[in-house]
Design a binder for these strands. Sequence first.
DNA 1: CGCAATTAGTTTCCTAGTAGACAAATTCTG
DNA 2: CAGAATTTGTCTACTAGGAAACTAATTGCG
Lengths: 158, 158
Amino acid sequence: MADGAKTPDAPVDLGALGESLGFLLRLAQLRAFEGFFEAMGDHDVRPGEVSVLMLIARNPGLRQGVLARHLSIKRAHMAKMVAQMERSGWIDRRVPDDDRRAVELSLTEAGRKYLSQVQPAFDTHEADAARPLSPQDEATLKRLLKRYLSLPNGKDPT
Amino acid sequence: MADGAKTPDAPVDLGALGESLGFLLRLAQLRAFEGFFEAMGDHDVRPGEVSVLMLIARNPGLRQGVLARHLSIKRAHMAKMVAQMERSGWIDRRVPDDDRRAVELSLTEAGRKYLSQVQPAFDTHEADAARPLSPQDEATLKRLLKRYLSLPNGKDPT
DNA sequence: CGCAATTAGTTTCCTAGTAGACAAATTCTG
DNA sequence: CAGAATTTGTCTACTAGGAAACTAATTGCG
């Protein structure tokens, strides 16, 4: 019953791995996603879906490829996600007249409603996603990650 | 929203996503792995394999499950990786007498040689893995990631 | 001791994600 | 304009990774 899963842990020497940025980032991402699923438990939703919904909500008419590029999701995968989410009735696909190769995405009414149900849980999760870190450390970490990614840092979208 | 925010170069508003720790970590990890593959180009090797080789090299006789836990790789997946790497002749699996369920891992001579070929490329990669960041920023980022992960820091035990 | 519970690893089946070929629409070039 | 090159999204096939059931060995408890 005690699901603490206490494990006989011999000390393991990580060597240079323990200083590897890629390794640390991988562990950190796994940890963060763990927190996401824990916080979202009730809603059966994945991080990628939330990000897609949020971006379409903020940028109606966004093209699939542009969405994929900004989320670092491959086009092929985005096609599947979008097809699934259209089937779920959350998003609408429209082929614009000025470029009939493209697909412009927008949220359906159901999609907006669904997002509004999920968003609070997501926001709550975000609020303490960095739990072991102090607010200052959290801010510094995010700032450095954005710098590493060459993303604009400010919250002012001028 | 009849206005078209749909041009390929149009600025995309990330909204709260741009401040999401999980999202930033995911992008950062993808970026880091990109750098890994770029640096390793010649060697056909994956990050997980390098980490497994490095940990076994440092901790001969390490058990599969312990290895998996420290690398945050699921046991099922580790079983497959280890089977593959044994087939490649890099690692040796030994069932200890005191617990015949367990498997103790060690590098073969070929494994040591292979690692010694891969390690320099990995070290070079690590040396400028955080390229857009200053050395101070890189150190801070790693320190904060370790703190986030509740890992010992090695230099600055706060 | 004998039997239940636990642990280590494996196997099977499934989902997420990628690579690369592809088709259609558009743009570029002479 | 015709035809090449590029862009946009999709399709097929493949790999990585995970959940859960399973086997075998060990431990715990009467």
